[in-house]
Amino acid sequence: MHNICTLFRREFASYFATPLAFVFIVIFLFLTGVCTFVLGGFFERGQADLAPFFTYHPWLYLFFIPALSMRLWAEERKSGTIELLMTLPVTLWQAVLGKFLAAWAFAGVALALTFPMWITVNYLGDPDNGTILAAYVGSFLMAGGFLAIGSCISATTRNQVIAFILTAMVCLVLFLLTGFGPAINALDGLLPQSIIDAIASMSFLTHFSSIAKGVIDLRDLLYFATLIAISLAANAIVLDMKKAD
């Protein structure tokens, strides 16, 4: 635990040692604003809720989260610090968890800084704050899912650009499009309904939208927890098999 904490703090601080944190947070906040007010029609809808804000989170995460996760292990490989890290008295698990949790906490900070949105909607009307809280929890869990996949993919390469593109593609094809109406409808008739339902149940979108409606179902929580656990286990296995180069 002590080691996870030490690695967490180092990794978390490293985001703020460069302009990365600032650039990331500013652009993230700007784009969530654009999505909510322009694309989502926040005012035109005339409803006091944050649905237009949360609807776009999966698509924003699609390129924001790989930008966070791409450096997690690829940079360690590129700079050779992986050799330093792996010869310190820490276990592989501690390293994987410490780094992942730091990235997740950073994503959490970016998400928390969208609080003016919450203040705005409370100022303008009388929203269901329980639903909003649930949606925040769902969004944070979804960010964790994206990050765990990104961390695993980052461990396979020393090239951050490759890590970014692969993560975005895997998340898009396997975890977003599978739950995206127009994409899943295209499969109608090609595959039996039960298989289509099974595919859709694997998607971030399916689980996120059910939490965002304000219902925190154990199955949705388990889905994200399992996804994160499996991705991080794969991450550790990849590192163990391929430490050098």
Partner: peptide, 15 residues
């Protein structure tokens, strides 16, 4: 019980 200097002395550059 070991101290190790890897080849090229890698360290976290931004720290």
């Amino acid at each position: 019980c070991m101290g190790y200097l890897p080849e090229g002395a890698p360290a976290y550059a931004e720290m």
